[in-house]
Design a protein around this nucleic acid. Structure first.
Length: 517
RNA sequence: GGCGACGUAGCCAAGUGGUAAGGCAGAGGUCUGCAAAACCUUUAUUCAGCGGUUCGAAUCCGCUCGUCGCCUCCA
């Protein structure tokens, strides 16, 4: 039974969708005025996993995530840079899509943009005006917060709290300081659309109410976003939607925690943010995804190089196992049909472990998408598999062990589809499928490496790269040295490659190499 | 000031009433020309502190301390 922590009730609730086998969900995306940072990535990755897990549970998921492509910050950015607001929005929309793709986030089914839904937005504002919940003032249209029963039910605030909270927006056009804007009159040069109240543009919260209801219906299942969107953004969305329809807007509200830096929220205003692009310069995208999923989505997660490096080591462990497993039973080996014969204890234990793993994985995910716990179970299975493949006698003599290993691999693969982690070919993870190796060194060390390579008969390119194929030659040289017990030369070659970040691994099957970042 | 979250080993992190998952790092061992990996053993008698409820609490209740977030655009 899937349980979801619902912000509305502040507790875990059993998930029951409105329509039997269908789930309609909406996540607040980004305002496209700048590069996206790790914090933005967290929400996208987390809700991507939510979507994939719902699919594993057999639901047909209709998933929408918006782009806010008209907004004060975009306009400001445009006036600073000389580009048009549209160019700014398009540039960062494209960039976000690319970033997310690299992080293994699938495109949502619907990616609505505010500017493409002006008509729906205007209609929603009109409905609110007609119902007496909104009023026009000087070309702006405001929502009358006090007229909406239940304002504050999501963020657990009362009207009094909000007033005593301190800073109230001073705007003489508002009838009440608590009111918020639905439609803004445009100043000359700003983006503008026709409306019953004159030329204007949408306010900050109305687009999400309008677009989600248009694509998913007036009541839908899940609405997600960052913790900081709870108030005022989502509170206002509820007021707008329920004010207009008189129906419940959303069944389950989900909010993800922040990415912190030194225990403080990563944010533009603090200037302590790392863009996805720059982190991808130093880390494999899967490392970032692993890092973001290694903590429960509602807890804060502290960003540091150390955490990322730990994640990389953990993934190394996983893919080392995968490679050994592939060597042991073959990459494409599938278990045969069960013929009814008695199975050896070792094989039986491994099959039970694989089944136990899937059960634990689903239990963890059923418990409000506990990816951290789910990943823990993955590594328990990794150890069980390693235990078996390190026992060469067992591998050789047990007729059932290959099938058992294949079962375990299948179980992991089911989990891998949900997390979109652990699913790559080890060749790719270890960097062997790259065409070129970059020598990460400079100064004297670089010169030393170049000399060493030249001595072995390979001239590095001027951009300090060399073709991956050259490594095989070095390995052959070293193995020739090893067979004549020329340990000194063998070690020289190992050290030379190690100096440029390439590690050689000897095994009975031969020597492999991998890049250690 | 109001509302809320969190505090588990050297680090990261699960665990919401039944006696502390997992990852990283460390130590010893097996294997190995060296190295790496893997495996075995080991690393929290204890879950910020103090009280309380209970046969039993990291888990429930109260208080204290500490950290953070929202209340203003923010994932």
């Amino acid at each position: 039974m899937l349980k979801i922590f619902n912000t509305l009730s502040s507790r875990k609730e059993e998930f029951v969708p409105i329509t039997d086998r269908e789930v309609r969900m909406y996540a607040c995306g980004v305002t496209v005025y700048d590069h996206s940072h790790l914090g933005h990535a967290r929400g996208a990755v987390v809700f991507d996993v939510v979507r994939k897990y719902l699919q594993r549970k057999g639901y047909v998921v209709k998933y929408a995530r918006n782009f806010t492509d008209v907004d004060d910050k975009i306009i400001k950015r445009a006036s600073e840079s000389g580009a048009t607001w549209k160019e700014i929005a398009e540039k960062y929309t494209d960039e976000y899509i690319k970033d997310m793709e690299r992080l293994g986030v699938d495109r949502p089914d619907i990616e609505p943009k505010a500017t493409e839904h002006i008509r729906a937005i205007v209609e929603l504002v009109e409905r609110l005006v007609a119902r007496g919940l909104a009023y026009e003032s000087g070309g702006d249209v405001f929502f009358s917060v006090r007229k909406f029963q239940g304002y504050g039910k999501l963020s657990k605030k009362t009207i009094d709290d909000m007033l005593s909270g301190a800073r109230v927006d001073v705007n003489e056009l508002k009838a009440d300081p608590l009111d918020f804007v639905l439609w803004k009159a445009s100043k000359p040069g700003e983006p503008a659309w026709d409306s019953p109240w004159g030329k204007g543009r949408p306010g900050w919260h109305i687009e999400c109410s309008a677009m989600s209801m248009m694509h998913l219906g007036e009541t839908f299942d899940i609405h997600a976003g960052g913790m900081d969107l709870q108030f005022p953004h989502h509170e206002n969305e509820i007021a707008q939607a329920e004010g207009a329809t008189g129906k419940p807007f959303v069944r389950y509200w989900m909010h993800n925690g922040f990415v912190n830096v030194n225990r403080e929220k990563m944010s533009k205003s603090l200037g302590n943010f790392f863009t996805i692009k720059e982190i991808l310069d130093s880390y494999d995208p899967e490392v970032i995804r692993f890092f973001l999923l290694s903590t429960h989505y509602r807890n804060p997660i502290d960003f540091s190089d150390q955490s990322l490096q730990d994640g990389r080591s953990a993934l190394d462990r996983f893919y080392t196992m995968t490679e050994a497993l592939n060597n042991a039973i073959g990459k494409n080996y599938k278990p045969g049909p069960y013929t009814g014969e008695e199975i050896s204890p070792a094989a039986d234990a491994l099959i039970k472990s694989a089944e136990g793993f899937l059960r634990k994985f689903d239990e963890a995910m059923d418990d409000d998408f506990n990816t951290a716990s789910a990943i823990g179970s993955v590594f328990e299975t990794v150890r069980d598999i390693n235990r078996v493949i390190s026992d060469t006698e067992l591998l050789k003599n047990d007729p059932h062990i290959k099938d058992a290993l294949a079962h375990a691999r299948d179980a992991l693969s089911a989990a891998s589809k949900v997390l979109n982690l652990f699913g790559r070919d080890p060749e790719d993870w270890f960097g062997r499928s790259r065409a070129k190796i970059r020598i990460k060194a400079d100064g004297e060390r670089l010169a030393g490496i170049r000399d060493g390579l030249r001595a072995l008969g390979v001239e590095p390119a001027s951009d300090n790269t060399l073709p991956s194929a050259a490594i095989d030659g070095f390995i052959a040289d070293r193995n020739a040295a090893r067979s004549s017990k020329d340990w000194k030369k063998a070690d020289e070659i190992r050290n030379l490659l190690s100096g440029m970040g390439i590690e050689l691994l000897d095994s009975p099957e031969g020597t492999k190499w991998q890049i250690k970042e």
